[in-house]
Design a protein around this nucleic acid. Structure first.
Length: 139
DNA sequence: TAGGCCATCTGGTCCT
DNA sequence: AGGACCAGATGGCCTA
């Protein structure tokens, strides 16, 4: 793989030195394909770092965990975000933040369990003398 | 050391 | 035509 290119993270200062492809079609300007490829790579890098990862970080901040700065993988962020939305939706529906909400297990409409976020609240309540705030953090 | 996770590269497709 | 978006491939790092 990448035999035709200069491998990872080709730097902009190298671009001008890169070879160009001789055009076979008449009237087509020679295109510095490697430079073009490196520019595309840079854009893609920038997009994943500043767009995709930023979105993951923003979403991560909205998910309560214990400890709050617990490292979550991207797939964990997505799954927990879904669970948390369901949790909030249940509380909104019942109108009772003290009432633990139940969630349906994947693919099984008959089987329910305490949702992740309520479960963590129960665990935390059992481990402390204070009661009250429902938005305890999972784990 | 195997497996999970991630960053990066790459080529294809779609959009402007 | 060029850029954005996407999914697959690859290799490096980390941890159990």
């Amino acid at each position: 793989m990448m035999d035709n290119y200069l491998s990872y993270q080709c730097l902009s200062e190298d671009w001008e030195k890169m070879y160009t492809v001789t055009p076979h079609q008449k009237g087509v300007e020679a295109v510095p394909v490697v430079k073009q490829r490196c520019q595309a790579n840079a854009r893609e890098r920038d997009r994943t770092q500043n767009s995709v990862n930023m979105a993951f970080n923003t979403l991560r901040l909205l998910i309560p965990t214990e400890p709050p700065d617990r490292k979550l993988s991207k797939i964990e962020i997505l799954r927990l975000a879904g669970s948390y939305i369901t949790h909030l939706d249940n509380q909104l529906y019942t109108g009772d933040v003290e009432q633990p909400c139940l969630q349906t297990k994947d693919g099984d409409n008959r089987s329910t369990s305490l949702c992740t976020f309520c479960w963590s609240a129960v665990k935390k309540d059992n481990n402390s003398t204070t009661t009250g705030h429902i938005y305890k953090t999972p784990f």
